[in-house]
Design a binder for these strands. Structure first.
Lengths: 156, 156
DNA sequence: TTAATCGTACAGTTTATTCTGTATGAAGTT
DNA sequence: AACTTCATACAGAATAAACTGTACGATTAA
């Protein structure tokens, strides 16, 4: 009776929190899996996750890899256990925000560089379109602001 | 010769900038359409957009509606013109960041409320899981931080 | 060395998204 | 009122994403 309540609440928390996690660019399954690991507070095998999520082991394998890329889970070693074990990282806010802002910062930088190249070409070819040139400058400025904003919410 | 260069550059800018815009949750087409409108600096009809994007008019209709929801374009009235005219809003950074952060803030708030409800239920039913309760509190805190961060990058 | 068990690559299937063409109601024109 | 022209709802086609099952190399156990 008590356990079923705990399971019930766990399910509800997974449902709600994973919605937020999804917004950071994870798939539904990745998000749910992460929250599940976070709530379990112990290393789990792919088989256990597969059982809990009701999805194939292959799905778990690829999802866990994504979560690792996001720095949200860590592989853990345990004596005598042959299977891979994974657990959710603590400090979730810091981890997620860094991964999130980092991705934006990288993208903004990269795009900004591309736009610089375009502007250079613009000038080299002596193209006469003040309005287009002006727009281009605004767009570059956009990326500068964007990068700055994302640096502000970075956590380390 | 000159015009073709301008067209070429326009295309390049669209390609690059739309990648950034896509990151805010717009589809490829929506992003490309918006950048196109932004660069054109004049109100365009659905037919003109359709021609320029090489996509159906229906696509333009739905895309423009999305862009309106994001507050990125405005319908414009012009004497003697029967068709709807749309143009990109100026102040793109401000507009986009507000729409972006606003969406996050709303979501964070809404999810936070759901989690409060869950916590209340937790307490009412006298469920004894200190670890789960602790996790739940952390998750709520997560949403508080998240909301605060998104308020920081809001632009008005 | 053989057998068992692991994680994952890969191909194919299912599901979801994006896009198109037709149809329709609304509004403007004659 | 009849005729155009418009935007968009809707159903279906094309494309993309998510997921599964089989197969295989790698590692451990016997």
């Amino acid at each position: 009776m008590l356990d079923s309540n705990i399971e019930d609440l766990t399910k509800k928390i997974i449902t709600e929190f994973s919605k937020t996690i999804e917004m950071f660019g994870l798939t539904t399954l990745e998000a749910r899996l992460f929250v599940y690991l976070y709530l379990e507070e112990r290393p789990l095998t792919l088989d256990e996750m597969s059982e809990a999520m009701g999805k194939s082991k292959t799905s778990m394998s690829t999802s866990i890899r994504s979560l690792s890329d996001f720095n949200l889970v860590t592989r853990v070693w345990k004596k005598g256990v042959r299977k891979d074990l994974y657990e959710a990282n603590e400090q979730i806010y810091k981890t997620i925000m860094n991964s999130f802002s980092g991705k934006w910062i990288d993208a903004a930088n990269h795009q900004k560089d591309s736009l610089y190249d375009i502007r250079k070409q613009f000038k080299n070819e002596n193209i006469t379109s003040p309005t287009l040139n002006n727009r281009l400058n605004n767009i570059i400025e956009f990326h500068q602001h964007l990068e700055k904003a994302m640096r502000e919410i970075k956590q380390d």
